[in-house]
């Protein structure tokens, strides 16, 4: 048997042992997972960021402009000392400024403007009633009413906001149902691995 499959099979069973109760075998498997994930990510980041984007271009290719991001990166470590921690505000400010500048127009377009235009649908489509249109309109208006706190939720406003909570509950219910399905799929995926690759019980 392939050593990788053997290790993966034993570790899968070790993780499943938690379903009975917490135990040292489970804890060992959990620690390995965390350690390996962090170690792997660290190596990948070191190679793809520090080596590929900084050290090689700066020292081998002589791109001196990279001294600026290098220094800004070093400033982040100034947080470890109270005396110098103010220096870290410079790269943080740059990151937040640039990040917001890039993200805000894109998010405004994709998450607000496009969603708004998608919420407006024709009620009559190809000569027949499009039932989705009034349901979406009602859902959007009532859910927004629920999150509108500048006016007391009484009267029409109260009933609309209450209707909004039902739409929210439907969303949460669907999300929870999908999450259960997702967790089941993960479990089924591991059982599939154990029965086919590890134990060879099915082909």
């Amino acid at each position: 048997m392939d050593i990788g499959i053997l290790v993966a099979g034993i570790l899968t069973l070790a993780v499943f042992s938690f379903l009975y109760k917490d135990n040292p075998v489970y804890k060992a498997a959990e620690s390995w997972l965390i350690g390996l994930s962090v170690g792997y990510a660290l190596v990948i980041f070191w190679q793809t960021t520090i080596i590929d984007l900084l050290l090689v271009p700066l020292f081998s290719e002589g791109r001196l402009i990279l001294i600026i991001p290098f220094l800004l990166g070093l400033m982040m470590f100034s947080r470890f000392s109270k005396k110098t921690s103010w220096l870290s505000r410079i790269p943080i400010a740059l990151m937040i400024g640039a990040g917001a500048g890039v993200a805000i127009p894109a998010m405004l377009y994709a998450r607000t403007l496009k969603q708004m235009s998608a919420s407006v649908m024709p009620i009559i489509e190809n000569g027949s009633l499009n039932i989705e249109a009034p349901v979406v309109a009602l859902g959007v208006i009532s859910t927004l009413a629920y999150f509108y706190f500048s006016r007391e939720h009484k009267g029409v406003m109260g009933s609309t906001a209450r209707l909004g909570t039902y739409f929210l509950m439907i969303f949460f219910g669907a999300t929870f149902g999908y999450t259960v399905m997702s967790r089941m799929s993960t479990f089924i995926g591991r059982v599939d691995f154990l029965l086919t690759d590890f134990l060879h019980l099915i082909k």
Binding site: A110, Q115, A118, F171, A174, T175, Y178, T179, M181, S182, R183, S185
Partner: peptide, 12 residues
């Protein structure tokens, strides 16, 4: 996508 993410992507 994983099933848990489907509802988050429905608006898109």
């Amino acid at each position: 996508l994983t099933a848990a993410m489907i509802t988050s992507y429905d608006p898109y």
